[in-house]
Design a protein around this nucleic acid. Structure first.
Lengths: 348, 348
DNA sequence: CTGAAAGCGCTTACAG
DNA sequence: CTGAAAGCGCTTACAG
């Protein structure tokens, strides 16, 4: 036990009879190696089972082959503790690990606090420790300039999920307005004309864009737009309940509701059940967030599926090409998907 | 941009006016530093914002401050793709990251294939790249001797989740027999006497232990034990359906069922609904696996909650103390929890 | 196209 | 109790 020594560049060099640099050049696919030598080195690496030591590579100023994916600590812990099965982290890992592995990188997932001062200190610490080649920021950190400033100072590439500015960063988002628009269109196509909308926090630009998309569709179809039917629910179950209840007790109540997130969609299901209003017979419902709860609810909900895995994969590939000297920054908008389940039906 | 240079041990040494070693000694809480010097060094590290570079520490043969948590690739991908919200990975990260952070470590999550040959090559690769101080193996890799042999050869500490041998490894498990026993006891306490059991794969020792616990309880209470009422469902929804159907169509059908995993528990709910058998009025159900689907089902199921986060946290702390020279190996059995929800009721 | 030298930021023996 | 030296496994200038 403990006897196996890992193979180093020195072993390969000795085996082939060349210098360590030559091996390094082959490893990094650099120029200036005779094809015959390159082949012999490659054969030797394969035969000896050589794998480069990431720590050593990182030392002499080069790449670390590490991408850091940062999530908000409070939100993540809350989801984990609640056990409601929000699969955002899973989808992040899915997309990120797949892409990193494809390119010989490793994804390291870390949590930092929301408060700007603490966040900066924590990010600074993990960067100094790990020296990643790139960092992925997710909401709400995507909007924290203290963090992006810090990354710029350190000269580390940065990708922001949910941002659409582009510029020096790799910004990856989905078509938020399109999501609101498509949800409303799906309902309008089912002959609904009285469509209410449970909006998210007005502090989130992305939520605002979704409302705009909804409004655009109503406009395009000439459907009535009532200010009263845009509920400001502040992102949770409890605060959405009274809003929904007020709507559903009206004489001319909405026949369809779009909910900005899964918790608010559950609130709709809850109130409808209490009032004896059947979903989807009497009321159609679309969730703009697709979580396991949304898929497993009774009935399973029609929902907009955010391309989380694809967004993180895109962030990784952008970061990797940036750290290998290719084009820096960019703006990528990925397509969402409307998944029809059983919470929406044609108006009778 | 790119101008900020991280603070190194050399900066601190120059600042205080001592050698780099002295700083290193303070950093590693080593002996042989005069208290006054130690205090000045610590003050300087704090003031300069010094954070040790993990790659550099790893180089000169010391620790890497990295713990590698390995999951099975196929299973993990399948869960992620299915989107049923199995939160095993989340709970792993929750427990592992919390403990690692507390001790100044980082948790790196990686996937390797099931097939022994591929698994070995992949583990060998990631170990050579990252040089972690310890590796956590989860089922089914916990049972793969090729992997543990490899780790022993490399001299890397290893923890196995779901194993109970102890010995040189840090083995962390839960009381499987106790889980089967408690599930049955809960039902017996509700006056049930005809309790059937949907067992998991006979290839998993842990599943077998749970059946034993169930059998022990029946024995202790003098309840009838029928070989027919132990279903061999092989771990999934489809294969459990006919077994459950046969049971529930019997004259003297079971009044309670224990399911080894969530998929089989869903199968029970499904068949009961089709046959017009109410849960929990006419049939009680306990799931031995607690996933978001189990919590969100209609009705929410009474279930055994596996201490996943705590097991991974224990594995991390065991690995960390082993790599810092303390006691090696050990066997830890963590308590599970029976969570009463709405799928079990007193027999009328 | 190839190699000898220096160095990344630490820690490990070894002197004093 | 403290420090000068060597080295971990690589890559980056710099010579040839």
């Amino acid at each position: 036990m403990g006897t196996k020594q890992p193979v180093t560049i020195r072993d390969v060099a000795a085996d082939v009879g060349v210098s360590r640099q030559t091996v390094s050049r082959v490893l990094n696919k650099g120029p200036n190696v005779k094809p015959a030598v390159r082949a012999r080195v490659e054969e030797s690496m394969e035969r000896l089972g050589y794998v480069p030591n990431i720590s050593a590579r990182r030392m002499r100023g080069s790449r670390s082959y590490l991408i850091l994916a940062i999530n908000d600590r409070q939100r993540t812990y809350e989801n984990w503790r609640a056990g409601r099965g929000n699969d955002w982290v899973d989808q992040m890992l899915f997309g990120g690990m797949t892409e990193c592995e494809r390119q010989g990188y490793h994804l390291v997932f870390e949590l930092i606090d929301t408060q700007p001062e603490k966040a900066q200190g924590q990010l600074s610490k993990v960067i100094s420790e790990l020296r990643p080649d790139g960092v992925i920021l997710t909401p709400p950190h995507s909007d924290n300039a203290t963090l992006t400033d810090l990354l710029e100072e350190f000269g580390i590439a940065c990708a922001r999920i949910g941002r659409r500015d582009g510029g020096a960063f790799v910004d990856v988002c989905m078509d938020e307005a399109g999501a609101g628009f498509e949800a409303a269109r799906h309902l309008a196509d089912l002959d609904h004309t009285r469509i209410a909308y449970l909006a998210g926090s007005p502090y989130y630009g992305n939520s605002l864009m979704r409302v705009d998309g909804y409004r655009d569709l109503l406009c395009e179809r000439g459907l009535p737009y009532k200010e009263d039917w845009i509920g400001k629910g502040e992102f949770n179950f409890d605060t959405a309940i009274p809003v929904v209840q007020a709507w559903l007790e009206q004489e001319e109540r909405p026949t369809a509701i779009i909910a900005d997130n899964d918790q608010m969609a559950f609130a709709v299901l809850h109130v409808a059940d209490r009032l004896g209003i059947g979903v989807p017979q009497d009321l159609s419902l679309v969730s703009l967030e697709d979580t396991p709860g949304v898929r497993l609810s009774v009935p399973p909900m029609t929902a907009i599926r955010q391309p989380t895995a694809a967004m993180i994969a895109k962030a990784c590939s952008g970061l990797i090409s940036e750290s290998s000297g290719s084009a820096a920054g960019g703006r990528y908008e990925l397509p969402f998907e409307l998944i029809r389940r059983e919470s929406t039906a044609r108006l009778k």
